[in-house]
Every structure is written in C-alpha cells, then in structure tokens.
C-alpha cells in the first residue's frame, strides 16, 4: 500500500463511520467482568446526569474488545499489565531522594491509596489546581522526598506507579468531582472534547460519542473512557498513560496534540473521567 492510498483509506473509513450512525447492534452487552473471580467490575451503567440525553448507557472499553482481549483482563496472571504493577510496587518500597524516604514511609501500603484512582483528577487546594495522579506523585517526590530527578510524566516508572495505584482501586466506582473549584477546568475539558481537530476536522465526540459501536478501519470504536488506565495495550506491549492515548487519538485526525501533562490535557482528562462516573476502576485494563 502506498502512503497516499493509506491516508485515503483513513478518510474513507471515517466517512463510512460518519454515515453509519451508532450501531448499537454491534455492542456485545450484558457480559460481566469479574477479575480473579472476586473483583466485580461495572462495565455498563447509567450515564452521569450531564450525559443523560446523550447516552442511555455508558460502557467501559472492555465491552468493545474481542473475547481473547477481554479474557486477558479477567485474571491477574493473564494480564501482562500486572507485571508493571509489580515493578511499581518495588519502586513504592524503595527509598529515593535526599530525605531517604520511600513512598511506603508515609503511605505504608499502596492499599492506603485505594480511593485515589476513582476520584482523580481532583482539585488540590494547596496548589490551586486540578491534579492528576501523576501530578500528585510528582508533588510527593519533589516537595516531600527531595527527589532531584522526579519521574517524567509519561516515563515507564511513572506509568508503573500509576498502574499500581489504579490496581489497588479496582472495582471502586469512578466518582470525580466536577463542581466547585474544579468546575472551570471541567468546562475547559468539555470544550476541548467537542472541538474538531486536524485536517479531518474530527472531535473526540465525533468518534466516541456519535459513532461508538461502529468499526473504524476494522477497529471497534468505544466511548473512549479512561476508567481502565493505565491500560496495557497489545499494540505497545506495555502500559500506556491517559495523555499518551489522547495524543494518539488527536494525531490520527492529523491534528496537533497538546503536550503530555499540559493543563489542556489535564482538563480533558478530568472531563473524560467524569463521563465515566459510575463505571469501575479497571486499571491496568487490557486493550488492543
């Protein structure tokens, strides 16, 4: 295939998607995900109030995957994402920085942080900003541990730690606050979500709100939820962060993405996370 037809193929696929409308028939609903035979995951539920009228049901990305991909997430041993959780746990218990502390010095076990994934991004009073899990980890490293070279926002170490924190929160109901001091950031995120990007003039909503359930170049479009992050992507054979995924989606519209860790992506993450209020924390989920 030449480059030209390849790109042509993308546009054609998108046009086909646009014409098709939501193909609910394509969604295999009603199956339940129970991880390790004990953690019950809500993969479909009523939408949060601000999305009533848009969706009748919100779905985890798990619903849109094949049997093989779904099965990998149902058992920690089969889920390669758990390898990175283990590496995160090792780092959690390892001293870093001038204070000689490990995360465990103050937080004892990751389980003490089990409510974090379900409630982040979250307004941080002290810093007067909405913080993602990654920002909170950086805050502890730089302000409390004296770490001279904190984790890069999208580094393997950061993703491992974020995966650890997600894993101990699995099964909890996503419930990010969108009102009060977070309202302004949330509104910015909403605006970005509905803005068309790139030469193909596509917004997140175009694919994930109006066309979920349809195929785009043989890939099954989901609602673009973030409840499963960090996700283990078969494509990368590694865990990927929320912002990395946002960047990939914008690039595919041939748009210019915001930077990973930028205020715009933080706002978008808050907004997208809130669209999943009611689903369960699933990370590290397995996706294609």
């Amino acid at each position: 295939m030449t480059r030209k037809t390849l790109l042509g193929g993308v546009s054609a696929a998108v046009v086909a998607v646009a014409a098709a409308g939501v193909g609910l028939a394509d969604i295999r609903t009603g199956d339940s995900l129970v991880i390790n035979g004990e953690i019950e995951i809500v993969t479909e539920t009523a939408p949060p109030p601000f999305l009533e009228g848009v969706f009748s049901t919100i779905y985890s990305g798990w619903v849109f995957r094949t049997d093989e991909t779904r099965a990998m997430e149902a058992d920690d041993f089969d889920n390669p994402g758990m390898l990175y959780v283990e590496q995160g746990l090792e780092a959690f218990n390892t001293a870093m920085g001038t204070e000689g502390n490990s995360c465990a010095t103050c937080h004892e076990t990751p389980e003490t942080l089990s409510t974090v994934r379900a409630t982040y991004p979250q307004w941080d009073e002290e810093h007067g900003t909405v913080q993602t899990v990654e920002m909170q980890i950086l805050e502890c490293q730089t302000e409390r541990m004296g770490v001279a070279e904190p984790y890069g926002y999208d580094s393997q170490e950061m993703r491992n730690m974020a995966a650890l924190i997600a894993s101990v929160g699995r099964g909890q109901t996503i419930n990010v606050a969108i009102d009060g001091p977070a309202a302004e950031t949330w509104a910015l995120g909403e605006e970005i979500y509905y803005t068309a990007y790139g030469q193909m003039e596509l917004s997140c909503a175009h694919c994930h709100e109006r066309n979920y359930g349809n195929l785009i170049r043989a890939d099954h479009l989901s609602q673009g939820q973030v409840n499963g992050f960090p996700t283990y992507r078969l494509k990368n054979a590694n865990i990927v962060s929320v912002h990395n995924r946002f960047r990939g989606c914008i690039r595919d519209t041939r748009g210019e993405p915001y930077a990973i860790g930028s205020p715009e992506f933080v706002a978008l993450e808050l907004y997208v996370a809130s669209r999943g209020n009611g689903l369960s924390v699933e990370g590290p989920a397995v996706r294609n």
């Binding site: 696929a13 195929l215 785009i216 170049r217 043989a218 890939d219 479009l221 494509k235 990927v240 990395n244 995924r245 946002f246 960047r247 990939g248 989606c249 690039r251 595919d252 294609n288």
Partner: peptide, 8 residues
C-alpha cells in the same frame, strides 16, 4: 489481524 483505527 485488525489494523487499529487509533494510534498513540
């Protein structure tokens, strides 16, 4: 083998 629709 499915060719993915979204990169990243």
């Amino acid at each position: 083998v499915t060719i993915g629709g979204c990169g990243g």
